[in-house]
Every structure is written in C-alpha cells, then in structure tokens.
C-alpha cells in the first residue's frame, strides 16, 4: 500500500509527472515518509546529502549562516517543492541549512538508491536529467533575480 501511495505522489509532482508507470514504481522503491516538527533541522550545511525531499505540507527555510549575524533565509520552500540538490553532484554534501518552519510532511528519496538505479539503467538516468534540469533551471533563474537585488534602488 505504501509503495502505491508514493507512486501516486510522484505521478502528481511536476518533476516526475512525465515518467512512465514502470519508472515511477522503480523510484518509489527509494521513497520514505518523513515528518519534521516546527523548528526542527532537516539537514545542516556539510551533511552528507543522502536524501532529497518532496515536500507535501508545511514550510521549510533554507538558510546560510554568517558567523557575525543571524542566519539569512535565502529561500523558503512549501508543499510541492523539492528540497535538496546536493545528492546529484559529487561530493554529495548539503550546501545549506534546512529548517522546518511549520510542521512538515515530506517524502524523501534515498540518494544512493536513486543514483544506483540510474547507474544500472542509463535510460532512467537520462529521464531524470530531462525532468530535473528544467526544475533546476527555474530555481536557478529565480536565484539570479534574487542576486541583483531588484528593490535595492527603486522609486515609486
């Protein structure tokens, strides 16, 4: 029953909705339910990126810490968003802190399991590439916009 549930969740998600049934069930084999309490750390910068999360409910703050001041929230993620890219790129480390702001319900995908399946099955690897990269590009574009600080010098 649990596996079927993961497949449905994946099938409805923008990143995975293009995959066929067989691939989804393959990926669902790497899935697990996760819950985080408000304020709970999901991962810390430098942790091994052994999971990626598909948020189902709740809000997550992605933070970068500066020694001399409060951590800066650089992105907030919400139901439907993907949390964590570190699992895709060696050396597979988390590059920021992730903290649950409210009660979070998520599905995690085990990184080693995913990478292993992609290694065994290059077609799956390519499908992952095709569906993950557009999602990454959207996030990347948003971060560029954030970078230029558009509201820094505006007038009414």
């Amino acid at each position: 029953m649990a596996l079927k549930g993961f497949e449905t969740i994946l099938a409805e998600h923008p990143v995975f909705k293009g995959f066929d049934h067989e691939t989804l069930s393959l990926l669902a084999g790497c899935a697990k339910n996760e819950r985080f309490r408000p304020g709970e750390t999901i991962y810390n910068e430098g942790d091994t990126a052994d999971k990626t999360y598909i948020l189902r409910e709740g809000d997550v703050a992605v933070e970068i810490c500066c020694p001399e001041k409060e951590p800066i929230i650089i992105e907030s993620l919400h139901g439907g968003d993907v949390l964590g890219f570190g699992w895709l790129v060696p050396p597979y480390r988390c590059m920021s802190h992730a903290r649950a702001v409210s009660a979070v319900r998520a599905m995690s995908l085990d990184a080693q399991c995913m990478r292993g399946k992609c290694d065994e099955n290059p077609a799956l690897g390519y499908a992952m590439f095709q569906h993950w990269v557009p999602h990454l590009a959207v996030r990347f574009r948003a971060l560029r916009l954030q970078l230029i600080d558009v509201y820094g010098c505006e007038v009414a």
Binding site: A61, E63, I72, I73, E75, S76, S102, A142, Q146, Y151
Partner: peptide, 23 residues
C-alpha cells in the same frame, strides 16, 4: 507575500516574486 531575504523570525515566504507567482 514574499521577500528576497529574511532573518529566522520570519515565517513567511522567502524567494523572488516570480516563484510566488508561478505557484
């Protein structure tokens, strides 16, 4: 409502306005 940057007290959205708009 979304902001480009925030400190930990903020429980709202952080991200550019287009991300919020897409949602």
């Amino acid at each position: 409502v979304t902001v480009d940057h925030a400190l930990p007290g903020w429980t709202g959205r952080v991200g550019v306005v287009t991300t919020c708009l897409d949602r």
